Amino acid sequence: MNDNTPTPSKRPEPQLDPAAESATESDEAAFDWMKPTRAGRKGAPEDGHATSRPEEAVAGGAPSQVPGSRRPVSQSPAPQSESARQPETVRQPEKVRQSGSRADRKAAEAAVEPSTVPNESLFSEPLPTSALQIRPPQEDVERRNAERESAANAKPAGPRVMQVLLALFYPVILLVLAVRAITSPLFMWVEYNRPGFPGDGYGFSTDDRMTYGSYAVDYLSNWSGPRYLAELVNHSGEKLFKDGEVSHMADVKLVILSSFAAGALMILLSIVAIIYLRRRSNGGVRRGLFAGSIVTLVIILGLGALAVLGWEQFFTEFHRIFFANGTWTFTLEDTLIRLFPGQFWIDAGIGIGALVIVAALLTLILTWPTRRRRGRVKAATDTGAESSSSEGSDSDAAAP
């Protein structure tokens, strides 16, 4: 094709008017991508490529030249209006001019479109510190420290109750154990064979006393009925114990077994108290046993003084406490009196008192509050208080 080639008949004639050409091209939708990109305008290109065309128009301004026109395009952008120069966060909407081309209206709408970005002055960045690093007021810290110190210095009721129970149970336990040691064939053998023990004026030898007395002592600690003694006979075939004697031995057995059961129960409770005190109170076991040994010595010394001042009166009042009147008195010819005379009961009382006193004195010596023991307990208590105080201080510092 050259300049001499004839023009086709249906070929449209080109427009030579630059203004009309610019308006026609601007009205076409195919050139929407050439419009300037504004911050915050919807439909802006997301790929980050900026257009190389300058801004076309602003509100109230003349349209700029576009590529393809025959007029030279100015390299400097058209001056912006005051509304376009304002920041988008404070730009106020204004009335859009309805005159002009479509490109002018689009540019004006884009210029006065309110920003979609929220006002940043209404929000602020979070503080770099967190709430756990904020220390509470000084008066709260002092109040909590005072409460913690008072709680550490105050003695709870639980350990005190356990110490009192241990101190009260200890004398009874020692008495029961001493009675169990006396009611044994070993003590009878020592009594019957010791020098100065009175003999039987009705014919019982030492061997007879040991044999018949063993039946009576075994009956007190076994689970047999009254037939255990009622069917015993002597050398001549007569009953060894009368019905009154068998009845009294049954009463004695009831008292002995009841005291053994109470002692066993107190031993279990004392073990529980010792375990509790070892976990909850430093030196609580020592203080409880120390107080119990003192109580034991006071009781035994008091009973011993009464027995020394009047043994007969003491023995009578003791039987009246546990037995009915008339059921525990016998003649010198009865088997119980021949086997267990008055000297036997005096020696039994002395043996019980001696065993209890020795055990109480040993306990008193082992639990005596010496300076070393008090210092050890105080050091353990101070260590526990310091650890709890440090933990409390850390929790106060971390508390919001």
Rank of each mutant, 00 (worst) to 15 (best):
F340Q: 04
P369K: 10
G384P: 06
K378T: 09
G304W: 06
F340G: 00
S293N: 14
P341A: 13
G392Y: 10
S388W: 06
F315T: 02
A399K: 10
F314C: 01
L336Q: 04
F314V: 01
L355Y: 05
L336G: 07
G284S: 12
I294Q: 07
S393M: 15
E333Y: 04
W311Y: 10
Q343F: 12
I300N: 08
W368G: 03
T367E: 11
R371A: 09
T363W: 09
I352M: 06
G310D: 12
L289M: 14
R280P: 08
F330G: 08
I294C: 05
I357R: 08
L306T: 09
G349T: 15
D347V: 00
W368H: 12
D334M: 10
G351Q: 06
G310P: 05
S281W: 14
L301G: 12
L309T: 03
A385H: 15
V295Y: 08
F322K: 01
G349S: 12
G375M: 03
T383W: 08
D382G: 05
T316S: 07
W345H: 08
S387P: 02
A380G: 08
K378D: 10
A385I: 12
A291Q: 06
G342Q: 14
L289D: 10
T367R: 09
I346R: 06
V295N: 13
D382A: 06
W345R: 00
V298M: 12
I299M: 09
F323T: 00
F318T: 00
R372L: 07
W345D: 01
G302Q: 11
A305S: 12
R320H: 01
R371K: 06
G375D: 11
V308R: 01
L303T: 07
S293Y: 04
G353A: 06
T296A: 12
S395V: 11
G283F: 10
H319G: 00
T335I: 03
R286M: 15
W345N: 08
S387E: 14
E312W: 02
F323V: 00
I299A: 14
T327M: 01
T329V: 12
A360R: 06
A291L: 11
P341Y: 08
F322S: 01
I352S: 03
G375V: 02
L289R: 13
A348R: 00
G353M: 07
A354H: 03
A307D: 00
A379Q: 11
F340A: 05
T327Y: 01
A359H: 08
L364P: 00
I321H: 06
G326A: 03
G310W: 06
A399L: 08
L297H: 10
W328R: 01
F330K: 04
P400T: 13
I350F: 02
G284R: 09
F330A: 04
A399M: 08
I350K: 02
T331V: 13
G288V: 08
V298P: 01
S388M: 09
T383C: 07
R286V: 13
L362H: 03
I321V: 14
R376W: 09
S281C: 14
A379D: 05
